[in-house]
Amino acid sequence: MPDPFDPENPTHTRLPDTHALDYAGNQGMAVEQDQLLETRPEKREEARSLWQDAWRDLRRRPIFLVSAVLIVLLVIIAIFPGLFTDADPRHADLVNNYLKKPNWTDFFGAGWFGYDGQGRSIYARVLYGARASITVGICVTLAVAITGGLAGMVAGYFGGWVDALISRLVDIFFGIPLLLGALVILNAFTHRTVWSVVFALAFLGWTQIARVMRGAVLTVKQADYVTAARALGAGTRRIMFRHILPNAVAPVIVVATIALGGYIAAEATLSYLGIGLQDPTISWGIDISSAQNVIRTAPYALFFPAAALSITVLAFIMLGDAVRDALDPKLR
């Protein structure tokens, strides 16, 4: 007996003229006397929210699995770099290790990726450099999602002069190139830490999220279920946080995930230019910058931090792509 409510077989498709696929099945109807009762399935169906559906969908995507494994690994490295190496990334032994070539057989050893121009273990520095990148990426994204999300929601929901004000502000910020703006802001800091970089990027980056959020809120605001909630007498807070936010947040999640990779790249760029993080903070950007002078003699000093940066950025962009596909409302 096929079970029409089999949770393993959600009935979403994108077919023309087959809306009936959305319909639950009709087994067991033959015994149902009351014609008002459309279906009484014999087995119980699991409740599946759209989030659960998206998660189920996500889990099946190879791109998601690859990026998720990479990101989990990167986060673990960022938190506990000591788990993967005993070497001290700041220990400089110029005499013995100046631009020493990689020792490919020394797995996970200090000399695995070779040594840089100051005789420091490149392997250790790549591992320790993850912390700054991941911290900047995640913190900027969180800050941007909260401020931009709020601004976009307020603008989209209230409209009128509030919207006009916020939208003009967004336009002004949007006109400032991220890197140029960050350069100017960071120049004002004499002592630059991870947090000053986070501040600079978040200060300039919130507009992107605000735009996306405003657009999503404007669409969701038109939905009949919002009207229905108003007709029931629901207040502004309930409508915003129960009805609009959960339905408008999906595109924001997608954009934020993809942007996260961009912020990591931006941090590296700033550090490379010497205006981002400073020694003794370990950053891929700084390492790339110092390795460029020795690129002919020791390309590995440039290659490993650059590869780590690329893989990290790519992982987040891939994650964003997979999330977008899973949340695509057209599939629902």
Partner: peptide
């Protein structure tokens, strides 16, 4: 009113596809 719903095209009922909603359905229809 015809009772029930149109069938799920992924799982069309065996026999006559209309049998679960049909007032006339007999064993042969299933």
């Amino acid at each position: 009113a015809i009772k029930g719903l149109p069938p799920n095209l992924l799982r069309i009922p065996p026999g006559c596809p209309f049998n679960p909603r049909c007032p006339r359905a007999q064993d042969i229809c299933r």
